[in-house]
Design a protein around this nucleic acid. Structure first.
Length: 293
DNA sequence: CCTACCACCTGTAAGC
DNA sequence: TGCTTACAGGTGGTAG
């Protein structure tokens, strides 16, 4: 579901509404929500109670709330997860999985997740060079393109070393984080690249153009409060963003490309879809078989 | 080592 | 109306 812009919208809400508050009580209502927290649900509840949330952090699609010492609560929204700030008196949501109440008696923080692909867990922070502290379970996630320390040249080098298609590479969270199916398609359209183009066939300048397109589309989406097609993708107050109105190709099968008017096509991709303009983003010639010089 | 693919879930919409 | 199928914003584990 939510990609970097939607997750960042949630992070901002958490920074505003829960940072600085002391957790009173934690209730895990569905075991799958904390399945990656190996010590178990009861330990998760006990260890968070009484802790003070100091801030709200994000890398790519991962969020975390540092709580005292060197640990933090990690949250990943998966395909349908929501973190909502609601009054304690509000009736339980249909897919409420975890509820955190606060010592100040103010609004709860609730983790609601229809498909249960999302999860929460507690983990220790590790210091990674150069100068970024992230929770240990997500050390393998690459910096995201809106982070200060994202290394454009390193990204270009690693991207062009890959023996795979460009869209697969964009979705590889250990290469560049935060990009999902929507923004991959939108960035490829902006850069006039077909997703099946081999990553190692891109020139340095085309790589830079693609990275700029990723940043542009994400920043524009952020300005609109993110993308939501339905009530599944919302900020902490349950409100949807408006970027779906600005999408050029994603979800626009048979509608005209806003650049050339050609009908957008949809192709199956990994049990999902890829959308592109057949004229602006011509499918590359089939590549020579690998190996053999 | 690297890349490709599927399982993990619930809900909605479309097709018959 | 009801049944079946396709599809939905992600990713960890594992087969090759």
């Amino acid at each position: 579901m939510p990609e970097l812009p939607e997750v960042e919208v949630v992070r901002r809400g958490l920074a505003r509404w829960v940072a600085g508050r002391e957790i009173a009580e934690v209730e895990v209502l569905h075991p799958r929500a904390v399945r990656r927290h190996l010590p178990g649900a009861r330990e998760f509840e006990a260890r968070l109670s009484g802790r003070v949330i100091s801030s709200a952090e994000r890398r790519g699609k991962y969020l975390w709330l540092p709580v005292g010492d060197d640990s933090s609560m990690i949250a990943h929204l998966g395909m349908s997860g929501q973190l909502l700030v609601v009054p304690p008196s509000a009736p339980p949501e249909r897919h409420l999985r975890v509820r955190l109440s606060f010592a100040d008696g103010g609004p709860d923080l609730r983790f609601v997740d229809q498909r249960t692909f999302g999860h929460l867990m507690l983990a220790d922070l590790v210091r990674l060079p150069p100068a970024r502290t992230v929770p240990e379970p997500i050390w393998h996630i690459a910096p995201d393109p809106l982070e200060e320390l994202f290394d454009d040249r390193l990204f270009a080098r690693r991207l062009r070393a890959k023996r795979t298609e460009i869209k697969r590479a964009l979705l590889d969270q250990s290469l560049i984080s935060g990009v999902g199916n929507i923004y991959a398609d939108e960035a490829l359209w902006r850069a006039k690249l077909h997703g099946t183009r081999e990553a190692d066939s891109l020139t340095g300048s085309k790589t830079a153009e693609l990275l700029a397109a990723v940043r542009d589309v994400m920043n524009e989406a952020l300005d609109q409060g993110g993308t939501s097609f339905d009530s599944l993708y919302v900020n902490v107050n349950g409100e949807s963003g408006y970027f779906d109105r600005s999408l050029a190709v994603y979800g626009r099968k048979d509608l005209p490309c806003s650049r050339c008017g050609t009908a957008v096509t949809r192709e199956p991709f990994m049990n999902r879809s890829s959308y592109s303009c057949p004229r602006c983003q011509p499918r590359p010639r089939v590549r020579r078989p690998a190996g053999r010089l």
